[in-house]
Design a protein around this nucleic acid. Sequence first.
DNA 1: GTTGAAAGGCGCGAAAG
DNA 2: CTTTCGCGCCTTTCAAC
Lengths: 155, 155
Amino acid sequence: MNHLKPLDSMDRRILRIVQRDASLTISEIAAQIGLSQTPCWKRLQRLEALGVIKRRIAVLDPKKLGLGLTVFVSIEVGQHSGEELTRFVDCVSSMEEIMDVYRVAGDVDFVLRVVVPDTAAFDVVYGKLRDLIPLKNVTSHIALENIKSETAFPV
Amino acid sequence: MNHLKPLDSMDRRILRIVQRDASLTISEIAAQIGLSQTPCWKRLQRLEALGVIKRRIAVLDPKKLGLGLTVFVSIEVGQHSGEELTRFVDCVSSMEEIMDVYRVAGDVDFVLRVVVPDTAAFDVVYGKLRDLIPLKNVTSHIALENIKSETAFPV
DNA sequence: GTTGAAAGGCGCGAAAG
DNA sequence: CTTTCGCGCCTTTCAAC
């Protein structure tokens, strides 16, 4: 299932294009990288088969959906059993307002990115978090401004 | 440029589908929400025109690109002039390893999400950050595990 | 809102150099 | 890798209900 050839420069150029605009046709992509359509299409197929391209999605505008508030939540869990932690992680993951969950090293254990309409909605999420298991410390950082939000990786 | 009608439940159902899979055809989407192709297509057009749908992209797998390390960086800038801050923000935004930049309220001023191959690459980014302007405090939280990473908003 | 249909583009794949 | 060819699906539009 893995790559025999890693990824050559043509593959990378294709990836750079489609991770910014997946609505382009094969012909347009092929023209941009200086290849004809057939090999370009085959490379795209291969990149999808390898799982380098995971899926294609539509990116929505959170503001226009009434989701104006982003909050970063840092959590210190303190002492807990494995089952308690598993339950905590499962519940947190299942909450749709919680977009990202990372376990991190350092003075905190988890970092969450929460997207909600307003502070009232965030308060609900915050309450749910505190009710899951006793947490040693929960710190919230409300986003005042989204300066950059990039979905395209440097390839 | 703004909506006369906000968004009805059909619009939301379309958005829920395409923000998870934009490779579906109009016919498939129409079938899923119980609408015929023509009105479904018109709604999609309208959602794009309104900017609710910003663009369509391919989502790549960072691990398969050799980007195995995510780091959250919290920055306290201390006292600086407006021009210094602007320069800092511009430089930070232009670095492609820095995926997200948020200005936040609380004990820190900025939160960054950095995606790099390894700690050596992160060290380069870290050095660049410190060289931009004198920073009061920079705290890095290395991600040990990505438990959840959601691109679809709750609509 | 619905169906049906037409026109053209494009994905997809085969064939051959 | 390249070009060419073609089938068939899909988008896009129109007309009529």
